[in-house]
């Protein structure tokens, strides 16, 4: 038995922590890439600003080649309600609201992360020579949170709601990031971009090493599509995240047995099947644009239903 509000808080706690983690990974990849480009061809932060912040077009034009300004907007700016500072603040609020259901160790990790990004020294480090170290230290805090959560949180319903939240967010990020790169090539699976093009996406999803170990032929576009959409072993693929959501969904529906259990399971089953039974190797059978749009819409529909069934306490 769990309060609906608590279930909601735990779901969002892990969504915010996952989003923070994912954005940090993307920032790190982009920052390192920016260092590679040299002064003749400065790195543009446009796509990061467009995707993860509410920056206006004129602000993006002003900031896109200014690494520190862009990073400040993504990480700390008060007028960015999706900044990492804002995400950690919201994660902490959710943890605070569910403090009697999470472990003391978890709470201390979330609280520590919050205080770290709100420390006046934090912004100074961002503008100094420690930028990369700062990003790494934040990633380390999230990793610690994950580790402490994994080793202390009881495997009860709270754990299941947290995992549904985490994997839902991860699935969304993978969809959005993949869409960005596939759109660039006109969603053409036969496009002949080399691995350097895809490396950035794979590094941003922490999947580059797995890619090198798994895919040996030169059809990089198809290989990447297989990895990010259908690979059961890649922890940020759609397949993996949906498998996980399915696992934890079964736990919460079995435990609670809500009246709308069947419709919830059907909504998820439809979504899961689209990924589970998708085929890349059949000529013309797989249309990435349609696939991404369908999965995203189904995922949004499913999360709305989940919210109505379990979290509708207001």
């Amino acid at each position: 038995m769990m309060l609906s509000r608590i279930a909601d808080s735990l779901y969002w706690l892990d969504r915010y922590m996952e989003r923070t983690d994912s954005i940090l990974l993307i920032l790190r990849t982009e920052y390192v890439l920016a260092l590679d480009k040299g002064s003749e061809q400065p790195h543009s932060w446009r796509s990061v600003l467009e995707h993860f912040t509410p920056a206006t077009e004129s602000q993006i034009l002003d900031w896109e080649y200014d690494t520190i300004r862009s990073l400040r907007h993504v990480i700390t700016d008060a007028d960015n309600n999706n900044s990492l500072r804002a995400l950690l603040t919201r994660a902490r609020e959710n943890a605070r609201g569910a403090q009697d259901q999470i472990t003391k160790e978890m709470w201390e990790q979330v609280n520590h992360a919050y205080h770290s990004v709100n420390n006046p020294e934090f912004e100074k480090k961002l503008e100094g020579k420690d930028t990369l170290r700062l990003i790494d230290s934040m990633t380390e805090m999230i990793t610690l949170y994950r580790g402490v959560t994994s080793s202390t949180m009881p495997r009860n319903m709270g754990w299941s709601f947290m995992n549904i939240g985490k994997h839902t967010e991860r699935c969304m990020i993978t969809l959005d990031m993949s869409n960005r790169y596939f759109r660039e090539i006109g969603y053409d699976l036969n496009d002949a971009r080399d691995i350097l093009y895809w490396r950035q996406l794979l590094l941003s999803l922490s999947g580059y090493e797995l890619h090198l170990k798994t895919y040996r032929n030169s059809q990089h576009t198809q290989n990447v599509a297989d990895q990010v959409f259908l690979n059961r072993h890649f922890t940020r693929s759609l397949r993996y995240t949906l498998d996980k959501i399915g696992h934890y969904l079964q736990d919460v529906t079995d435990t609670n047995n809500p009246a709308e259990k069947d419709s919830l399971n059907r909504a998820f089953g439809r979504l899961h099947s689209k990924v589970r039974y998708a085929e890349l190797d059949r000529e013309g059978a797989f249309a990435p644009q349609q696939f991404i749009t369908d999965i995203r819409n189904d995922l949004v529909r499913f999360t709305k239903l989940l919210t109505r069934v379990f979290f509708s306490y207001a």
Partner: peptide
């Protein structure tokens, strides 16, 4: 109270 299992 409103819980994930209904009212308690």
């Amino acid at each position: 109270m409103k819980t994930t299992q209904g009212l308690q």
